[in-house]
Design a protein around this nucleic acid. Structure first.
Length: 881
DNA sequence: GATCCGACATATA
DNA sequence: TATATGTCGGATC
């Protein structure tokens, strides 16, 4: 049961309040076993015989009270209860008091406010109030410690061969296992570090040898061991292939030996295998240290993937089964579900150190436990309950050798943790040692491997592909990554590297009836030019997007978080009627989700060289490619013109997005060929020209090299004198209107904005209209969530009808109204004028009138909503293309 | 020659 | 450190 459902349940209790059933309804709302609650109600499970009191072992002590001193009553109860009841509740049905006996948290609220405090009782639903489960400083500390240890050992062993590095990776993961084992009852407490400390020399000289024999012991059955000192023989057989290969063990020194002993002092049981593995990923490459853990996926984000991908559906089946009034039916359905979840395969083709696999494993084990609890309630049987969810149905591909070692290790550690949880509940469990098979984690390049070989599937297999593959924009990709993309697509492309995973994932799903996929991805594959490039390769063979999380900012608890905005996309070939869009923690059921993650019936808008509407040409501003050399701040310019007043004529104002929006003064050199010689006589300018010349000459690009000989000029010049319409290339998404402007005089627009030279005035009105804004947001690119204008994608594709001169005049009048309103605030920048909270009323009204005039051109009936505007635009777009 | 993008970049409070 | 909001020129077509 998820939290939203629980909250809904509680709201229902309050809305249809019933004194008699309140407490039982409350327990039901959290998904506690129905059969148990029924028996509690009948009385045979109630440990209290006092009327108005309900006492349920480990769960609840409830008391109805008419007295006015509820506080006194609850304190009294707290001091007397003896069946480990988690919550005490006392109420007079006006006020509700509650105590969480485990955390000592208290609740004191009017009863009708219960829905907003529903989280207080979440432990009933198996959700502990761990405030920052994913913000564990212990993980970071441990990772840093391991990184230091790695450095020390590396320094003492200057061997860079791949074999040695691999051996070191394996050694570190074994060490991690030992640390963890002695803190979590796999070994005895401190058994490993004590043994090491007592039986090796302080200078580290014999430590390598000791590890060699120690690992051999862990890999040998107790019966097969002989002549071992008692302290070594006391270690259990571990197996699981963790210790079965021989590698060169590094040399140790006093320092590295001490570092290992110090490592044992950490509280390893506080560490989450879900996260800590990711931290260690960056241990190896010193160049990655700064970005330690930047890219690991936090538990909440993993949940955003696995819940809609499969977990919610499994819980639906679970809830349906326990809702039967017929125990035999419930029993049957639950057994079926048990079987189903034991057969599920989970596959992460970019698994890193296995976070997704670990969380998925944990969630399946938890569901399995809940099913066992329900079955127990029904049967009171003593069938042997042992988990049937095995690590060998978890698959992964990881390119990094160390991460892949850690992934296998972390899966074992998680299995152990779940076994401990299981034992607490059922008194027995599968033994942790000797370790069984771990997950099927393959080390390799996922873009080159055959996924069907890594995770084979029969027609009956239910497979869920998930993960957070690497993102890399086209100009950041390495040569190898480019050839990976090329290999998959058969041609060069401007797609992000993650496209490999979507395309291969789609191929892997094929037409398989029981396979779905969901990845966390950079949002740029759902915007701008990439949409039309990527999605035809993905949404083939009846595949659809069946859920999507719209753009949200990437976060985790790493020190320096990756700067990216992400989406989550689920794809399947199953036919699913109602798709779900998640946005700002709200979900919306829809019929269709397009690759922009909205609901219009549009697949992808392609870049166009020419406008489809009767518009003049829009061009990118003038591109300096000057490495900063040809542009000057007012101070820099003044320094020169003060000394050489005749140089004033060489400078012109230059405007990009920022200069226009924030009214920033900036100057550039803009000269005729004939003036170049006199330019060179000014020392400050000559210096700049030399700089530009050098930079251009050193560029990899031939076209830049050519212009090294003309360092006084911008490389690409498109300027025309007269009036120009400026459209900023990037602008905040918070603004209701795109701030555009008319520039007069010789102002140079640079490549950070677009220009229409000597435009018809009504174009100003059309491009600043709400309906055009809708279009940009729908089909344009973006920088994270900022609006990014582009001529080919936004302007040339914008459908606008041919209009009469009268209409043109109406719009032109509106434009003048907007300009007048702006002029009333000469001291304000565009950023201030278009701040959605502070926009002057007059300006807003002028825009409203402009919108009306523009929208009149499409149809006489006014549009009711943005959705309606977009529908209309898409229809028109299809007609016009 | 022209342009769209960034597991971003940078200023500001 | 968190928040707000747009640089610059590389790589590709």
């Amino acid at each position: 049961m998820n939290q939203a459902r629980i909250q809904e349940n509680i709201q229902n209790i309050i809305n249809n309040f019933n004194k008699e059933s309140f407490i039982f309804d409350l327990l039901l709302a959290y998904g506690l076993p129905k059969a148990g609650i029924t028996r509690l109600r009948k009385g045979d499970r109630n440990l209290s015989s006092v009327p108005g009191e309900i006492s349920w072992k480990k769960k609840l002590f409830f008391k109805e009270a008419a007295d006015n001193d509820l506080h006194l009553i609850i304190t009294n109860i707290k001091s007397k209860i003896k069946h480990d009841q988690r919550f005490i509740i006392v109420t007079d049905y006006q006020t509700l008091l509650a105590i969480d006996t485990k955390t000592d948290d208290k609740l004191d609220i009017p009863l009708n406010e219960l829905p907003t405090h529903f989280d207080f009782f979440l432990p009933w639903a198996g959700m502990e109030k761990v405030t920052h489960k994913n913000d564990n400083p212990a993980d970071v500390k441990a990772a840093e410690k391991m990184a230091r240890l790695f450095d020390i050992i590396k320094k003492d062993n200057p061997d860079d061969s791949p074999e040695f590095i691999h051996g070191l990776n394996v050694f570190l993961s074994r060490l991690l296992f030992c640390f963890f084992a002695e803190d979590t009852n796999i070994f005895r407490e401190n058994q490993f570090v004590n043994a090491l400390d007592a039986h090796t020399n302080a200078d580290g000289s014999d430590l390598g040898q000791w590890f060699e024999s120690f690992f051999l012991v862990l890999d040998t059955h107790k019966e097969k061991r002989s002549d071992l000192p008692e302290y070594l023989n006391a270690f259990h057989y571990v197996n699981g292939n963790l210790f079965n290969k021989r590698f060169t063990i590094p040399q140790f020194t006093r320092r590295s030996r001490q570092a290992i002993i110090d490592g044992g002092q950490l509280q390893w049981k506080d560490i989450n295998p879900d996260i800590f593995g990711s931290m260690f990923q960056a241990v190896i490459g010193a160049d990655q240290r700064g970005s330690l853990g930047q890219h690991y996926t936090s538990v909440p984000n993993i949940m955003k993937v696995i819940e809609p991908l499969f977990l919610n559906e499994l819980y639906e089946e679970f809830n349906k089964a326990i809702a039967h009034n017929n125990p035999a039916k419930t029993n049957h359905d639950l057994s079926h579900l048990l079987h189903r979840i034991s057969k599920i395969k989970i596959f992460d083709p970019a698994c890193g150190s296995g976070n997704f696999l670990i969380i998925a494993y944990k969630e399946l084990r938890r569901l399995e436990m809940k099913i066992f609890i329900e079955l127990e309630e029904i049967e009171k049987s003593h069938i042997t309950k042992l988990s049937n969810i095995h690590l060998n149905r978890f698959y992964g591909i990881e390119i990094d050798d160390f991460a892949h070692e850690v992934a296998m290790l972390a899966l074992w550690l998680t299995e152990h943790q779940m076994n401990v949880e299981f034992k607490k509940q059922f008194g027995q469990t599968n033994p942790t040692l000797p370790l069984k098979d771990s997950g099927n984690i393959v080390q390799g390049n996922a873009t080159r491997l055959n996924w069907d070989e890594v995770c084979p599937k029969s027609q009956e297999d239910e497979v869920f592909v998930l993960g957070n593959p690497p993102y890399r924009g086209f100009s950041q990709q390495s040569t190898d990554q480019k050839s990976d993309l090329n290999y998959i697509l058969g041609s060069t492309t401007k797609l992000d590297y993650i496209a490999c995973w979507f395309i291969l994932g789609s191929k892997y799903i094929g037409a398989h009836p029981k396979t779905s996929l969901a990845f966390v991805s950079t949002n740029s594959i759902t915007q701008g030019e990439q949409v039309a490039l990527l999605w035809p390769f993905v949404l083939n063979e009846n595949k659809t997007i069946f859920f999507a999380h719209k753009s949200f900012k990437w976060t985790n608890s790493a020190k320096s978080k990756a700067g990216v905005t992400v989406v989550i996309i689920g794809i399947t070939s199953k036919s699913i009627n109602s798709k779900i869009i998640f946005e700002n923690s709200h979900e919306k059921k829809v019929d269709f989700i397009n690759p922009y993650l909205s609901t219009s019936k549009i697949i992808g808008v392609q870049k166009r060289k020419e406008p489809i509407s009767p518009f003049p040409k829009m061009v990118l501003g003038n591109m300096p490619n000057d490495f900063g050399g040809l542009q000057f701040s007012p101070q820099e310019k003044q320094e020169i013109t003060n000394n050489f007043p005749e140089t004033n004529r060489f400078f012109k104002r230059v405007v990009g997005s920022q200069e226009f929006i924030k009214d920033i003064e900036r100057w550039c050199l803009w000269v005729k060929e004939s003036d170049v010689d006199s330019l060179k006589t000014i020392p400050q300018i000559a210096k700049r020209l030399l700089f530009v010349k050098d930079q251009r000459a050193n560029s990899k690009k031939k076209s830049y090299n050519i212009y090294a000989e003309k360092p006084h000029r911008f490389i690409e010049i498109r300027h025309q004198s007269g009036t120009s319409l400026i459209i900023p290339g990037t602008s905040s998404e918070k603004r209701e209107y795109l701030p555009i402007g008319l520039l007069t005089g010789e102002i140079i627009i640079n490549n950070l904005a677009f220009a229409i030279y000597n435009p018809p005035i009504e174009l100003f009105g059309i491009l600043s209209s709400r309906i055009h804004n809708n279009w940009l947001r729908a089909v344009g690119g973006s920088l994270e969530t900022r609006i990014r204008y582009s001529s080919l994608l936004c302007y040339n594709t914008f459908p606008f009808p041919q209009i009469s001169d009268r209409r043109k005049q109406e719009i032109t009048q509106g434009v003048f109204r907007i300009l007048e309103e702006r002029e009333k605030h000469p001291d304000k920048t565009m950023a201030q004028l278009y701040d959605p909270d502070k926009m002057p009323d007059g300006l807003r009204e002028a825009h409203r009138l402009n919108d009306l005039a523009v929208e009149q051109c499409y149809r006489s009936r006014p549009f009711q909503s943005d959705e309606e505007r977009l529908e209309h635009l898409f229809k028109l777009y299809e007609q016009m293309t």
